[in-house]
Design a protein around this nucleic acid. Structure first.
Lengths: 350, 350
DNA sequence: AATTAGCACTCAGGAGATGCGAGTGCTAAC
DNA sequence: GTTAGCACTCGCATCTCCTGAGTGCTAATT
């Protein structure tokens, strides 16, 4: 992308730009000079405003939809607005209450908290929320269990220090006997507790294999099938809230746009990679900054949440470029703070 | 609902009705007499066809969209078509292959099989698939485990005979000690293995409570919090596939219709109750037969799947009333049969 | 020098008018 | 009983016209 020239704007231009963005965010209609001149914040004639708007347009901060239309903010305009003009939004008591309510119910499972959060955030904002669940790969093993179901199958259960439970069924070779299985489990629990899940398989084959081979008859036979069961799914889960909220936005009255957008959301992998790479803190990506045709008309605001100072996951709000930046930013700030506090309190005291 | 009069149709009328429905299903355009007269199956002049169509309309099987338009099937027409005119559809090799592919991968978890099925069925049909997961309440307890995570929390794990794993975190009262917990678990496992999950809490409080009270110090204190953990979520899970396929149907080019429909799908509860009540076999509900405004323009074809002869769950395909009934019916027939066979083989041999 | 009033101009979008084509129903002939 | 023929209907696309909200520019005003 070309680096765009950043002009120095006069106070008056700043004011006008801000009012245009604010107005357009709420009305979704191009803003004209006459309607601006009527606002309290601005006491200038429409002609003067027209002159200033012409300058703002030349600098690339606003644009027209056709020759004689009012102005709408350009992506560059939104960028400037987000970087310099958003005032810390005084949050509505209602919204604050709803965010607090997420944490009031006594839920202990990380994943459920996160899922609930996605739902409520989308309800408050009327946009779509995307929550990247906690990274389970870095969680540490608390216990491994194997429960045989019948002669042929058993289920392996992996419990982490955060209380996350993974389970996988696997096939039992006919020659195996239950005692052997128990021996394996004992050895594994003995040696592997505290190991991050991501290192589990590695550690088994490199360090524990020798030991297992000594004690177990059919080592290869068992590990062939059981080993797979221990490979924890590599990806964190994505949770969506309010996918259909986008349908209520006037910019998505076109069914084709809706389709490409919803389609993109089904492509978990892309979203996953995209959201995952966020550094901690709040970030705003506007329109084409997202590098995805489906999101041309969308902005994405992301925040991270942590436990102590270990980053756990990401939460994002997806709306039209014409979204209420200041409100959403404040909401996410509050939310990620609260979530971090709760999680730290819940799980940090081992 | 009023019982509608069922007229006896001449062979010629049947033929015309069938061709109209078939044609409309594929073109989504009202069918006129002239285009009908050109078809090979029908060798009549357009005028004759017009006369027959007038009769069919009078009987309520077809209708006009405006005075001089071609005809489209009415709900009654679709009903008649489904009940009497659908010919067993010769399935495409491709489709059969895709259905078989669902079961080729070695997945053992019931839920994952079902989830995968929803996805693939929606891909084959281009409609929306709704799968009601296996009823876990009737599964029988295989084992209960409790794993303490730290001083304050523990996770309870319930494993069923089908390999389904439920887990719930709960709070440990500070005065409790680990040995007591283990004692409880031992007693529960001793007494409750083989009990259907739905009867679990009941059985604990009615039969096992006495025994527990004898052996456990802080019975009330523990059971207060642990008891909740054993209450298995009452509902089976709903899985959707191809929610957005509906957007490609011409009848859903209207954003409002899409919104009400997608909204309805978010109301899990309603869909759940509605689909659940199906008897085994294949059932077709057309338009307003579904008793839901959101589904006025939709038809729902449901099939059940079982293990042995115990009905496990339901799978449904949701499409516009103008959907390919015969194809979908055949697909569902094949699919539910295959799924039943696989499940029976997988889990029946205990 | 900065601001404003005034004016000619542009364009989207809604309201009518028009024509075309695909359909119908009816009547009379085959 | 079937069909040809004809008058009629209506949706839909196209065109034109009109209005209103906007613009840019120039000249007058502060």
């Amino acid at each position: 992308m070309l680096t765009e020239v950043i002009y120095v704007l006069t106070d008056r231009q700043l004011l006008i730009l801000q009012v245009i963005v604010d107005d357009f965010i709420h009305s979704a209609q191009p803003v004209g000079s006459r309607s601006l001149s009527k606002k309290n914040e601005i006491s200038l004639s429409s002609a003067t405003i027209r002159n200033e708007m012409a300058d703002l347009e030349e600098m690339g901060y606003i644009e027209k939809t056709h020759t004689s239309s009012g102005r709408i903010p350009s992506e560059k305009g939104y960028r400037y607005y987000v970087d310099h003009l958003v005032s810390p939004h005084a949050l509505n008591q209602d919204d604050v209450g709803k965010i607090k309510s997420i944490f009031e119910e006594k839920i202990y499972e990380l994943e459920k908290i996160v899922q609930r959060s996605a739902k409520i955030l989308s309800e408050i904002t009327n946009y779509t929320s995307i929550v990247l669940g906690p990274e389970i790969n870095v969680n540490k093993l608390k216990k491994i269990q194997i429960v045989p179901l019948n002669q042929e199958t058993a289920v392996a259960i992996i419990i982490t220090d955060t209380g996350h439970v993974e389970n996988r069924m696997f096939h039992l070779p006919p020659s195996i006997n239950i005692n052997e299985l128990e021996k394996i489990v004992n050895i594994l629990n003995d040696r592997l507790v505290g190991v991050p899940l991501i290192n589990l398989t590695d550690k088994i084959y490199k360090e524990v294999a020798v030991l297992l081979r000594q004690h177990i008859q059919n080592y290869d036979l068992i590990m062939n099938t059981f080993g797979d069961a221990l490979k924890v799914s590599p990806n964190e889960k994505l949770f969506y809230g309010g996918k259909i909220n986008m349908l209520s936005q006037p910019e998505f009255h076109d069914i084709e746009k809706v389709k490409t957008l919803l389609n993109m959301m089904e492509q978990d992998q892309w979203i996953y990679e995209f959201i995952r790479q966020n550094q901690s803190g709040i970030h705003v990506k506007i329109g084409r900054e997202n590098n995805n045709i489906a999101m041309e008309n969308c902005s994405l605001i992301t925040a991270t949440y942590s436990m102590g100072d270990e980053k756990l996951g990401t939460i994002a709000i997806l709306g039209p470029t014409r979204m209420e930046y200041s409100r959403v930013i404040s909401l996410l700030q509050l939310f990620s703070q609260d979530l971090t506090t709760v999680l730290t309190k819940l799980y940090q005291n081992k």
